[in-house]
């Protein structure tokens, strides 16, 4: 047997053996993922039970014809208004954040004006400074601005908090766009605003989508700020609503779990439609570290 054919056989064996030995890997992955997904499974199956069914049979789902859909009626009634508030805050703040960040990123990417560097370092410094000490003075600031117990407070804080990261990412992206495009647009007499709408936004749509989702997720999951800012029940966001739900209705687990399900459904729907954006956004975040 010649040298070449030995290599060929070895390569074939390597490929063949790899395929043959893939099932233990799948087993390990499924085992870990099963444990990781256990909370979601429990939430799903308990949400269809009442307390006695849960106590006699905590682990396994009921047969579909025994499901208590009235739990969900309760869940929607309870969580629905909170979801409305949260969707409002998350959409408005994510859109405004990214709009303003795009403007700022456009400025930094295209022009080098006097003071540009100073202004840029004002942004960069915040990337490094932790915000932990801010929460107490922020509360006082909102109090003196009469913004306590309003949804606007949450929106402006989210907008301010998102400026640095989004501007940073968008600036890098806009800098990589070909200059000819902007020059051609300028010859045609396009204003800066038109250039942003017609060049920057279409060309960086994927990154804008990813940033929008990240910022939306951040608002959706936040509960510390709403908990400090909001007092009135009508204004509660999902986070505060869930905290109060957890405190009040300790008895009916089926109803609580169905409320949790209802709280998760909007994001699950978004996730199904933008799975690629989620996976890519997280992978990009991971590479950036």
């Amino acid at each position: 047997m010649s040298d070449n054919s030995i290599h060929a056989v070895a390569a074939l064996q390597a490929v063949g053996s790899k395929r043959g030995r893939d099932w233990p890997k799948h087993l390990v992955i499924w085992l870990i993922l099963a444990l990781q997904l256990l909370p979601l499974y429990m939430m799903f199956q308990i949400s269809f039970k009442d307390n006695t069914e849960f106590l006699t049979n905590p682990w396994f789902p009921l047969l579909p014809w025994h499901w208590h859909f009235d739990n969900f009626v309760y869940g929607v009634k309870l969580i629905g208004p909170y979801i409305g508030n949260t969707v409002f805050i998350a959409t408005v703040s994510a859109s405004c954040t990214i709009f303003l960040a795009t403007l700022a990123a456009y400025f930094f990417a295209r022009y080098k004006m006097p003071l540009s560097n100073v202004l840029w370092s004002i942004f960069l410094v915040l990337m490094l400074l932790p915000a932990i000490a801010n929460i107490v003075p922020l509360f006082m600031l909102l109090k003196s601005m009469n913004l306590l117990n309003t949804l606007q407070a949450l929106i402006v804080i989210a907008m301010a908090g998102g400026q640095v990261f989004n501007t940073f990412i968008l600036r890098n992206f806009i800098e990589d766009l070909p200059k000819d495009l902007f020059e051609a647009a300028e010859i045609d007499g396009a204003s800066h605003f038109q250039q942003i709408i017609n060049i920057v936004v279409p060309m960086s749509a994927p990154i804008i989508g990813t940033l929008f989702i990240l910022s939306f997720l951040g608002q959706w999951n936040d509960f510390m700020m709403p908990l400090i800012v909001l007092r009135d029940r009508e204004l509660f966001t999902l986070g505060v609503g869930l905290v109060y739900l957890n405190g009040e209705y300790v008895k009916q687990w089926g109803q609580i779990m169905s409320a949790f399900m209802v709280a998760s459904i909007p994001l699950i729907i978004i996730f199904l439609f933008c799975m690629k954006l989620f996976v890519r956004g997280l992978a990009a975040g991971a590479v950036k570290g």
Binding site: P39, M43, N221, S264, F271
Partner: peptide
């Protein structure tokens, strides 16, 4: 792996 992240953080916390 991302699926648990789609559920609000508070929900998994309370579960």
């Amino acid at each position: 792996l991302i699926v648990p992240m789609v559920v609000p953080g508070l929900v998994s916390l309370f579960i």
